[in-house]
């Protein structure tokens, strides 16, 4: 789905979102009031400028609209791969975006992520995966790396990766895998405005993704391991 169609469906009562190149931001009206929207289009690679701009938009919401919920709708093919971005410290810009999201959360803003098209690797990591809860459309593409590239890097035969990906969610692309592992809370279909209202009304209680992944059978160890490290007596 393209971003304009998405915004029309999310906010039938209207929105003032402005597009500028790969970036968009603004607010939409929903049942509970105004929702800030920050995102990107066209599977944008996230480089230092885009990360900085999205972080600035989060800060603007925190400063000017205390408590207003924030919806991150980021369409990305991943972090921008370039010598220049590395030279200027792209990881610092990505971390800055993450810190701004944490600031919003700390100050009582609900932060939702919605993968409406594509979410890949570092671009996903620094945005929607830092939301309180992340949702996705059923036809969204979510991945770290496609299987042919993964096969080249790991030197594991592609056929083997393809065969194992039929039964294991842990490495292959696919929004269903992220659903099973708890990173995507639910797939949104039907009336998106209703889905958004329901998500904004749902209680939030810390980072529950490990527990969700365990309950869904997609990620059986993360919750248990973290719990043991947190609570075991030291030897």
């Amino acid at each position: 789905m393209d971003a304009r169609t998405l915004l029309d469906q999310l906010f039938p009562a209207g929105h003032d979102v402005v597009f500028d190149g790969p970036y968009f931001a603004g607010s939409g009206r929903c049942g509970a009031g105004s929702v800030a929207v920050i995102g990107s289009v066209d599977a944008a690679p996230i480089g230092i400028e885009l990360a900085h701009r999205m972080a600035g938009a989060v800060l603007d919401v925190v400063r000017e609209h205390p408590g207003r919920p924030i919806l991150l709708a980021v369409d990305t093919s991943g972090q921008r791969l370039s010598h220049r971005d590395e030279l200027l410290g792209i990881n610092g810009y990505m971390a800055h975006l993450a810190k701004c999201i944490a600031l919003a959360r700390n100050r009582g803003h609900r932060v939702l992520g919605l993968v409406y098209s594509k979410a890949v690797s570092g671009g996903f990591l620094a945005s929607s995966l830092l939301a309180d809860v992340c949702y996705a459309l059923p036809d969204a593409e979510v991945m770290v790396m496609n299987l042919p590239a993964m096969s080249r890097v790991t030197k594991i035969a592609l056929e083997r990766l393809q065969a194992l990906s039929q039964t294991s969610p842990v490495f292959a692309p696919g929004v269903a895998n992220y659903l099973a592992m708890g990173a995507v809370e639910a797939l949104w279909d039907g009336d998106l405005a209703q889905r958004l209202d329901a998500a904004l009304a749902a209680p939030v209680d810390g980072d529950r993704r490990r527990a969700v992944g365990e309950a869904r059978g997609g990620r059986l160890l993360a919750r248990r391991v973290a719990e043991r490290v947190r609570t075991d007596a030291v030897g």
Partner: peptide, 18 residues
């Protein structure tokens, strides 16, 4: 992220960040 378990690793890193 460890590619053999790339999805679990990516989600795991986001949990570390949080």
């Amino acid at each position: 992220v460890r590619l053999h378990e790339a999805n679990a690793g990516l989600i795991g890193v986001s949990e570390v960040m949080r």
